[in-house]
Amino acid sequence: GCGGGGGDSGGDGTGAEYTWRMALNGSAPGELGYDMATFFKEKVEELTSGRVSIEFYGGNSLGSTTEVLEGMAAGVADITCESVGTLAPFTNLANIDIMPYIYNGYDHFQAVWGGELGQEILDTVGNDSGFKLMGAGYRGARIVTATKEMKTVEDFAGFKLRSPNLEGYIKVWEWMGSAPTPLAMGETYTALQQGTVDGQENSILDSQSYSFQEVCPYWILTNHVYSANTIIMDKAYFESLPEDIQSALEEAAVYAGEQIGQEVLEREDAAKEELTAEGVTFVDVDNAAFTEHFSGYAEANFPDLADWCNQIRALAPNA
């Protein structure tokens, strides 16, 4: 590459040794990646006494996630906060982020990502893809919002559902017997209204931010995927940094992950109250039955991830 970016400039008036462009999906506070990045930025600037300064470029203004990651070695952006799964184009292992039914709840998620296994996943994904991954932020379990009430695995047979145009997500819904329809997020609301699709899947908070409660009266708590946000930098550039900066970055990322996790829990509770008041029916499903239905999923679709999935399952708090 071109040597780790044009980030190190001192003459921009901030007095910082390192001024980094941070690429973000969200454009304002309230979006989880943006908020995790804010915790991170404040902590980094505090820990380095202002030697590092981070500027936000929200709303994908530096490019889509893939473009940012691809251009990071050249300096398109210096740092980003994204889900681990967005690294799937670089390494298959990153798909661990979207494996269905390997967690049974928030505590399980924290047990994995707050411990050695989580660190091992971050390091392995990073080494395979050429990035440095730091910290893990809970994003809220993914659920299904639907125009009709769904309860059992069987209910999902033939169910038309919007999914991201990613093989990993499409396979989940094919395994369920549903009819996944890849659609741009911008077209989804209209598609739900017009009945092109009967549902979509996202976290509660994201679904609320897209106002899907206006078109989907039933929110099915499938909790099928627990994905993690992480702070990402170019690996070679990260390793070229002084050690005290490196450790400050890592400490800040872990801190940001913990903070955002707590926030998400609180926001989800508040969102559920608001949504119920707006007429949304939250439907509990028998998670054990769904987990059972997905027992051979990784082996069949992502054989090299099966072992990782088992290690994650083994850390279930009540297992």
Binding site: E70, A74, A88, P89, F90, G130, E167
Partner: peptide, 19 residues
């Protein structure tokens, strides 16, 4: 040309071919 080289380590989302 640099972009093509960079694309060698990225897989496309749908076809799974190198970018």
């Amino acid at each position: 040309i640099t972009l093509v080289q960079t694309g060698a380590r990225t897989m496309s989302a749908g076809l799974g071919i190198p970018m």
